[in-house]
Amino acid sequence: MFTRFLLTTLLVVPAIAQINNKGPEAPKGLPAPRTADGHIDFTGIYYGPGYGPSDPPIRGGDTIARNITRGMKPEDVPLLPSAVELMRQRAETNSKDDPEGLCLPMGTPRRDPYPWKIVQTPTLFVILFEGNVHSYRQIFLDGRPHDPNVVETWWGDSIGKWDGDTLVVDTVGMNDKAWLDLLGHPRTSQAHIIERYTRPELGRINIEITIDDPGAYSKPWKVYESSQLAPGWEIIEYICNENNRDVDHLVGK
């Protein structure tokens, strides 16, 4: 557990060469488990995306939590001029208004470095997040459509369906308050997000995320995330607004 606290400390020191977790790993090459009805079973606890022991070293603080577009070419992130301006303002104020730093929800599909857990039943896919606000996402697998009267929220209204061994999660009804990362890539209330979850082997989950948000981007664009299984770990309690030391640092420039 110490490594996780260490990780938090190191996050604010971007010069660190490598901050991947040390921890348990599943044996390589074993197939993903399946449920009684033959679907891939994603149930398990995973390292934060990119933070597993076998993930490529994270250098210079270039994490998905800081920059959801890390490693991408600028032309693959089709920011509208208004979104460029919004990001300039957020950079100018040193991300002081980042909702995540103020203990508000990350919102879909933002990620942090902390472990996360999936609990899957035939009709429901639940994600439990250790970090951020220690909250959860519910993804309905029972075939229902989106709520026609959806109220805009941080996490949105998520429904999932199977495409072979891929779980396709469709999310609408998101508010325009969440940031996609610490740098402040915007998300507006026009956002429609499609996540494609695959588990190519026991020890790994991959997610292809399509961000379709005409309020901030000129066309849909994609992000790829990968998380390593942390066998034997458990989610530990994490209370953002208890003794929050971050808020005093969020003062702008």
Binding site: K117, V119, L124, L128, Y136, Q138
Partner: peptide, 24 residues
Amino acid sequence: VEIVQTPSRIVILYESWHIFRSIP
């Protein structure tokens, strides 16, 4: 509150405070 049950775990999701308990 919502109870999600699997053979090896019970998860209780609470609307208030939007927090969870995960019980092996």
